[in-house]
């Protein structure tokens, strides 16, 4: 009988031995993925107003154009760090230009208004579609007007910033991927009216299906001060990896669907691996006629390597 008990105990202990070896967090053995760029942790601008300190964070060190740039605005009370009850944050943006003849002009750009960051009362997130560069804080610059409330105290300030010219991937030069800025804002004309395709900040990209959203805006009739959303076009994306023989994704061309609630064109992007993804953009009218971009074409070897001139891109 003693032996029986010993045998039973042995068997049980065998089962337990292996149960102690589950190490669920030991996934990553030396991955080579790029750092995630969707987090808004880089401090770009800082300004003091009265006893408030306002910091603007983004995912880039320096604003560039054209781009759809996410920002996170954080308000703090310098005198009382516990005072975090901020509300009604809103921004407006203006590009100030000085012409060669000294004439001054200004216009706005599309944007996503600030909204509170979930679980926070002093952080607000939005997006600015910088449509052009301006590198002179006296003559050519962008100005972000910020308004908010701290309890009943109104806060208002203007923050000036330069925006550099973005350097983007040139589809005729594969080496230009290196050091390029992400293409998140594309422009095109419909009947002589300037339109914008803005690629919204996604959560962290993963190998798998990713939710993506693109907004279309057009220049309003009032000298570039408003940018109404466009809901009657068709947005298609053909994701490609130019530095990997321009291979595509499983489904081929993806057509985004317009969501009337978010006023964005939305869809799933199946990214089969990490790396540089060129999103070949083709915009069609309601009749299905191409009005901007070209589908990926074949080269002289019959391989689909000729990308169109309108695109968005991402690296992860």
């Amino acid at each position: 009988m003693k032996k029986l008990i010993y045998f039973a105990l042995t068997i049980i202990s065998l089962g337990l031995t292996t149960s102690c070896t589950s190490d669920d967090n030991a996934m990553d053995k030396g991955t080579t993925t790029n750092p995630d760029t969707s987090e808004l942790k880089t401090k770009v601008l800082e300004q003091k107003v009265d006893n408030y300190n306002i910091v603007i964070y983004s995912n880039v060190k320096e604003f560039y154009a054209p781009s759809t740039t996410p920002i996170l605005v954080e308000f703090t009370d310098v005198d009382n760090p516990n005072n975090k009850d901020f509300s009604d944050a809103a921004m407006s943006i203006l590009m100030h230009m000085t012409m060669n003849n000294g004439h001054k002009m200004s216009h706005s750009a599309p944007m996503l208004q600030l909204t509170p960051v979930k679980g926070s009362t002093n952080k607000f997130q939005g997006e600015i579609m910088f449509s052009m560069a301006g590198m002179d804080l006296e003559k050519n610059y962008w100005e972000i007007t910020l308004n908010a409330k701290n309890k009943e105290v109104k806060i208002a300030t203007k923050v000036k910033t330069t925006v550099k010219n973005g350097i983007f991937y040139d589809r005729n030069n594969i080496d230009s991927i290196q050091g390029s800025d992400r293409k998140t804002l594309e422009t095109f004309n419909v009947d002589g009216v300037k339109h914008f395709a803005a690629f919204h900040l996604s959560n962290k990209y993963k190998v798998g299906n990713n939710d993506i959203a693109v907004s279309l805006y057009k220049k309003g009739d009032n000298m570039g001060m408003t940018f109404p959303e466009v809901d009657n076009l068709i947005v298609t994306i053909d994701p490609r990896m130019p530095d990997m023989v321009n291979h595509g994704v499983l489904e081929g061309i993806i057509t985004l669907k317009y969501n009337t609630n978010t006023k964005q064109y939305e869809g799933k992007l199946p990214l089969s691996m990490t790396g540089y993804w060129f999103l070949n953009l083709v915009i069609k009218n309601a009749a299905g006629e191409i009005i901007a971009g070209q589908p990926v074409g074949k080269d002289s070897d019959g391989k689909e390597t000729v990308n169109g001139d309108k695109f968005l891109d991402l690296i992860f």
Binding site: L14, G15, T17, T18, S19, T21, S22, D23, A26, M27, K29, T31, T32, T33, N34, I174, D175, I177, Q178, G179, V207, M241, D243, M244, M273, T274, G275, Y276, I315
Partner: peptide
């Protein structure tokens, strides 16, 4: 009884210098 952990990965080294690899 046994417990096995199998992990394998694929890195395609980009032909473009300085560009990020595919993983």
């Amino acid at each position: 009884t046994y417990y096995n952990k199998s992990l394998a990965e694929m890195t395609m080294l980009s032909s473009t210098p300085g560009s990020s690899n595919m993983f």
